[in-house]
């Protein structure tokens, strides 16, 4: 991934600053719906993290996974299962533990699916995702199909001093924003590294990467594991936010939604799928408020965007802001 055009970087930074300022002025703009919108935005930012993690697989490495939500859901379930019922879990223990478990799970799923490609890879990841779904749906491990509650949010303390109160909606909002920015920057750094260059090249032409002396399996497996673990982080945060997990978080519907966010936002652009999460969730919210048949206009919108912007919103922005399109007078 090459560096973003300067003007686009500025635009994205402004968007992040506005998001950061929202809790301060949201009260004035939307007096009745402020609390609701802040929660909604928190959820969207968490989904944006999920979408970016999926973009690493789909858009960068060329691995179209239909089971990505399994890692999201697993991250949430780990929090539910590791939290004591009536007291707060220690974040410094449960977060790393959850991420390690998700990393191991995604490495295992990756190991078993990465040697397939194309439609077979989609099918194998779909199957693993559904295995995860039914595992939590049918077992008594964490409430079965009813799901499980996280009664007390994890405590964030150092030496007994509370740093953050995750029960506070505004605090959680900033945690979500921090995760969004942090994961984006982390993935940018990783994609610019030698590892990231090889993974990007695999997405373009895997066979040639092999011919140049890199073992694609190792690089794809690690990318898959990184993507799965970040999805687990998103699921962990979502579980904190909602105080509840259920098997639907692992299901292929959820994987499919994340995939739609990636496609709407622009595969392989990283910032695009994050925008895709906002477009998807805000449009869903808008249509839901107008009609109970919201899936219909939603579907029409998705088809429209895919037809008009084959490279997604991110692709459009790149085209608008890149110097080349100016020279060629494009769009």
């Amino acid at each position: 991934m090459s560096r973003l055009p300067r003007s686009l970087s500025i635009l994205l930074s402004v968007a992040i600053i506005l998001l950061g300022a929202y809790p301060l002025f949201g009260d004035v703009l939307f007096p009745n719906k402020h609390a609701f919108l802040m929660q909604k935005l928190t959820g969207i930012m968490i989904m944006a993290v999920m979408a970016m993690s999926l973009d690493l697989l789909v858009g960068v490495a060329g691995l179209v996974s239909m089971g990505h939500a399994a890692f999201f859901g697993l991250g949430g379930y780990m929090l539910a299962m590791l939290s004591p019922e009536y007291s707060a879990a220690n974040l410094w223990v449960v977060l790393p533990a959850a991420l390690v478990v998700v990393a191991i799970a995604s490495a295992m799923v990756g190991y078993l699916s990465i040697r397939t490609s194309g439609i077979y890879f989609i099918m194998v990841t779909l199957a693993f995702g559904q295995m995860g779904f039914y595992f939590f749906n049918d077992s008594k491990l964490a409430g079965g199909s009813d799901g499980a509650y996280i009664m007390v949010k994890p405590a964030v303390e150092i030496l007994g001093v509370s740093l953050l109160n995750l029960g506070d909606k505004r605090t959680l909002y900033y945690v979500g924003l921090g995760a969004l920015v942090g994961v984006y920057l982390l993935l940018r750094v990783v994609l610019a590294s030698p590892f990231g260059r090889v993974v990007s090249a695999i997405g373009v032409n895997e066979n040639r990467v092999r011919g140049l002396g890199f073992d694609p399996v190792a690089y794809k497996l690690l990318a898959f594991t990184i993507g799965g673990t970040i999805a687990g982080l998103a699921g962990f945060l979502a579980a904190i936010q909602y105080g509840f997990v259920n098997p639907a978080t692992l299901s292929w519907h959820h994987s499919g939604e994340a995939l739609v966010m990636v496609i709407l936002g622009g595969m392989g652009t990283l910032f695009g799928p994050a925008i895709g999460a906002f477009v998807f969730e805000l449009a869903k919210m808008g249509f839901e408020s107008v009609t109970e048949h919201w899936l219909l206009p939603m579907g029409a919108m998705i088809i429209g965007i895919v037809l008009l912007l084959p490279k997604g919103v991110g692709g459009l922005l790149l085209q608008l802001f890149s110097g080349r399109s100016k020279m060629e007078g494009g769009q």
Binding site: A192, P194, V198, V209, Y219
Partner: peptide
């Protein structure tokens, strides 16, 4: 990218290529 094959490994994650 091809020249990265000269590195003992490209499993390096932080410093830009």
């Amino acid at each position: 990218l091809a020249a990265q094959a000269q590195l003992p490994t490209s499993m390096r994650f932080l410093r830009p290529a």
